[in-house]
Lab assay of single mutants.
Amino acid sequence: YTAFGDLEVFLHGLGLEHMTDLLKERDITLRHLLTMREDEFTKNGITSKDQQKILAALKELQ
């Protein structure tokens, strides 16, 4: 049995499950992801397509 964390649930909701391992390897938490700047997305290997999905979701949360 494995409990999913906030990061996994957030990514799954956006259809971005493939990013879970990448972000965990880089010790990026959901809190960090929510406050990242555009250059940090790129530096951490997050594609512009995935970045757009994340940023759109963040706008909806605000």
Score class of each variant (00 low, 15 high):
Y1G: 12
Y1R: 10
T2P: 07
A3E: 15
F4G: 14
G5S: 13
G5V: 07
D6R: 06
D6G: 09
L7E: 03
E8A: 08
V9H: 15
V9P: 13
F10M: 05
F10C: 04
F10W: 05
L11T: 03
G13N: 14
G13C: 05
G15W: 01
G15E: 05
G15S: 04
G15P: 01
L16M: 09
L16P: 03
E17K: 05
E17V: 08
E17A: 10
H18I: 00
H18K: 04
M19Y: 15
M19I: 14
M19E: 00
T20A: 13
T20V: 13
T20F: 11
D21M: 09
D21I: 06
L22T: 12
L22Y: 13
L22A: 12
L23E: 02
K24S: 07
R26F: 00
D27P: 02
I28W: 02
I28N: 00
T29W: 00
T29Y: 03
L30Y: 07
L33T: 00
L33K: 00
L34G: 08
M36D: 00
M36T: 00
M36G: 01
R37G: 11
R37M: 08
R37E: 13
R37Q: 14
R37T: 15
E38D: 11
D39F: 05
D39T: 12
D39R: 06
E40P: 01
E40M: 03
E40V: 02
F41S: 02
K43T: 10
K43H: 06
G45Y: 02
G45T: 03
I46A: 03
I46K: 01
I46R: 02
S48V: 12
S48W: 07
S48M: 11
K49R: 11
K49T: 13
K49M: 10
D50Q: 11
Q51H: 09
Q51D: 00
Q51R: 12
Q52F: 06
Q52E: 11
Q52P: 06
K53P: 05
K53E: 06
K53C: 05
A56C: 11
A56L: 10
A57C: 06
L58M: 14
L58H: 15
E60N: 15
L61H: 15
L61T: 15
L61V: 13
Q62E: 05
Q62D: 08
Q62V: 04
